[in-house]
Design a protein around this nucleic acid. Structure first.
Lengths: 346, 346
DNA sequence: CGACAATATTTACATACGTAAAAAAGGGAG
DNA sequence: CTCCCTTTTTTACGTATGTAAATATTGTCG
C-alpha cells in the first residue's frame, strides 16, 4: 500500500520516462512545460513517493526563496500575532519562512543571524531584543542582505528600514485621553531595556510637561528579576498600594502585560479600577494584547495594527529583494497609527 | 573597516593557507585538528567574513543535524511555552531546530511535513491540529523518519511514539477536587475537534458516573465560529447566565482559555466565582495557562509539566535518531502527571 | 641524525539538482 | 510528405561542501 520511495530526480526520470532537466523545470514552474508532458509527470508522481531535496535545490538557485524572521521571544501574544501575520503574508508572496527565536538571549539571536547568512536567505525581518542585541552582527546582516526591522528600533541602528507603530502618536492617545477625562496619570514603566517602553516613557514625560502636569514615573527599577511583565507590574503596584500610594490615581502602564499585573495588584487590594467612578483608580495599558477584552475589568488600551505592520514589513522586504533602491542616507520608515480601545478599566 | 567577504571554503583555504579538507573538518569538529592549526585557522577567520554554506554542508552529511517541529498555532501561550522548552532542549543537544506553524490549516501543516521530508530532517516533533490533520501525510512522515507526537494524539494514529500529559489523571484531579469540596461541576467544553478537550470531557463523564452524580455538558456546539477559546467560553456562559442557569454551580472548563472567557461572563453578570463561598459559583480550568495567576479572581487549574514534556520529547526523539529500537506494536508513550493549582476561583 | 607517529595536503569522487547548448523528436500546416 | 517550429532529450558542467585514500609534512624521541 505504501508507494515506492524515490530519492533523486535521476531515479525519478527513469521511473516515469521523462528526462531530468524536464523534471527540474517542472518542479520549478510547470507552466513552462507542455500540458501533455505535465500530465505524464503528474501521473507518474502519483505512483511514487518523491520530494525534491530542499538543500540541493537551494544550493544553486540564484534565489533561495527563503525569508528569515528573528523574534526576541515567543511567550508573548504580541509577537505571536505579529509572526502569524508575517508568515501568512510571506507565504502568500511565495516565500518559505524560517523563524528563529532569540529566547531573550543575544547569543542565540546572533546564532540565528549567522544561520540566515549561511542559508543565503533572500532577506530577513528582525524584531530585536532590547538594548542587548549584538549590534555588530545586526549590522553585518543588514549589510549583507535585504533587512527590515520590525516592532522596535535599537538606538544603536537608527538608519535602517523599519516598520512599526508610531509610538509617539499611539501612546500619546492614551496619555491625552487620561489627562482629558480625569486625573493625570502616573507612568508605570519597566527597567529601561525595552525600546518601546522607553519611548512610551519619554512620550509620557513630554506630554505631561506640555500640559503642565507633574509627571510621576514608577517601576523603572525591577523588584524581582524574573523579568515577566505581569509579575513586574503586580509587584511594583502592590508595593505602592501597600504604602497607600496612588490608590485613587490613574495608572498608565508601559504595556498591557504590565497592566494585567497592575489589575491583579488592584484586585488584591480590593480596588476596582474603572472609568465610571470620579477620581477613583484607573488603569490603562498599550498594545491591545489579545486578552484585554477578557480581563476584569476589561482593559482600556491602545490597539497596534499588527496586521498592517506584518504585511507592510513583508511587502517592503519583498520590494528590497526585488531590487528596490535603498536610500542609505534616508531609509524607508513606515509608522502605523494606534487607535484607542476604551473599555472598562479607565 | 568591514572585513573582506569570502564565499567558499576553497577561497578561504587559499586565503589563510590551510587545505580545504582540513577546514571542512575544522568546521565540523575543531577537536579533530591539532591545536596549532586550529589557532592558525581562527586567526585567519578573524580577518575575513565567512560562513560555511548551510545547504552545501547539509547536502551530503549523513545527518543534517536538524529537528523539525510542527505546532498547530502560535497564538496560545501553551504552545509557546512548550516550543520554548523544545527549542532549548534541542539546541542543548546540538541540533538546529526549524519550526513550522500550521496556523490551524491542514494544508499548511501538510506543507510543513513535506518541507521536512525534503530537508531530510533527522527527526520531527509534531503537535497535531485537531481531527483535521491530514492523516496520510502524518503517516508518511512517521514512516520516513524518527517521529514523536507531542501534546495531543489523534485517534487516527494511536500507535505512535508520544509524549504528553496524562489527561485522565490531570483532569481527574480537578473533577475530584470540585466534587469533594463542593457542588459537582458542570463541564463547559468545546466543539469536539480538540483531542485534549475531548479527553477532558470523557474523563469528566466517567468520573461523574463513578461518583453517582448527574453530568451536565455545555458548550460543545459553537455559538460563534470565531474559534477563539476565550470568546467561546464567554459566549456560552453568558448565554447560560442570561437564562438564569448554573449561576451558583461549579463550572469546570475544558481548558484555561475557555475558563478566562467564563470568568469574564461571570464578571459581566456581577458574579464573583470563588471557593470561599459555600454553594456559590466556582470556575476552574486546566493547563495552568501562564496568565492564570493574574486573572480576577486567580484561576484554579491543573498545571501541565511543560518543561518535562518538552525535554522528554526531545530526548526521546534524539534516542530514536541515534537508532533506538522502536517496537512498532507497542511504541513508547510517556505521560506526565498534572498537579492541582488551587487559587481563588474554585 | 634518523625513525616513527601524528597530522596535514593532494587528489579524486560524491551529494542532488540547476542550467546552458546542441541534438533529436514531435506536431501541425502547407 | 516535407518543412518549420516547439518541446524534449542528451550531454556536460556548475553549485559548496563531505569524505576517503594516498602522499607529504611536521614534530618528537632516542
Amino acid at each position: 500500500m505504501s508507494k515506492p520511495r524515490i530519492n533523486t530526480m535521476e531515479e525519478l526520470s527513469v521511473a516515469i520516462g521523462v528526462s531530468r532537466p524536464t523534471l527540474s523545470r517542472y518542479f520549478q514552474d510547470p507552466t513552462r512545460i507542455k500540458a501533455t508532458t505535465v500530465a505524464r509527470i503528474e501521473a507518474g508522481l502519483a505512483q511514487v513517493e518523491y520530494v525534491p531535496n530542499f538543500f540541493a535545490t537551494r544550493l544553486n538557485r540564484k534565489s533561495t526563496g527563503i525569508i528569515g524572521v528573528i523574534i526576541p521571544y515567543l511567550n508573548d501574544l504580541f509577537f505571536t500575532k505579529l509572526l502569524e501575520q508575517i508568515e501568512m503574508a510571506a507565504m502568500a508572496a511565495g516565500y518559505t519562512v524560517i523563524t528563529q527565536c532569540s529566547h531573550s538571549d543575544p547569543e542565540i539571536e546572533a546564532r540565528a543571524a549567522r544561520t540566515f547568512m549561511s542559508m543565503s536567505v533572500d532577506g530577513v525581518l528582525v524584531a530585536p531584543l532590547g538594548d542587548q542585541s549584538d549590534a555588530d552582527i545586526q549590522e553585518q546582516l543588514s549589510q549583507r542582505m535585504p533587512f527590515v526591522l520590525v516592532d522596535s528600533r535599537p538606538t544603536t541602528m537608527p538608519a535602517v528600514e523599519y516598520v512599526g507603530t508610531d509610538h509617539e502618536q499611539s501612546f500619546g492617545l492614551i496619555v491625552e485621553y487620561l489627562c482629558r477625562v480625569g486625573e493625570p496619570p502616573v507612568f508605570l514603566g519597566m527597567p529601561r531595556v525595552n525600546f518601546n517602553a522607553n519611548q512610551h516613557e519619554s512620550t509620557y514625560l513630554r506630554m505631561m510637561a506640555e500640559k503642565g502636569f507633574e509627571p510621576t514615573v514608577i517601576g523603572t527599577e525591577a523588584l524581582d528579576d524574573r523579568g515577566h511583565f505581569e509579575a513586574h507590574g503586580e509587584a511594583i503596584l502592590d508595593d505602592c498600594f501597600s504604602r497607600g500610594l496612588y490608590m485613587d490615581r490613574s495608572i498608565l502602564c508601559a504595556n498591557d502585560r504590565v497592566a494585567i499585573g497592575a489589575l491583579r495588584a488592584a484586585m488584591r487590594h480590593g480596588l476596582t479600577p474603572g472609568r465610571s467612578q470620579d477620581g477613583g483608580l484607573r488603569i490603562a495599558g498599550h498594545d491591545d494584547y489579545p486578552l484585554c477584552p477578557f480581563t476584569t475589568p476589561a482593559l482600556t488600551t491602545v490597539e497596534q495594527d499588527f496586521e498592517a505592520i506584518g504585511k507592510a514589513a513583508v511587502s517592503r522586504l519583498v520590494q528590497l529583494i526585488n531590487g528596490a533602491e535603498i536610500n542609505a542616507a534616508k531609509p524607508q520608515v513606515q509608522l502605523f497609527k494606534g487607535s484607542l480601545r476604551l473599555r472598562e478599566s479607565a
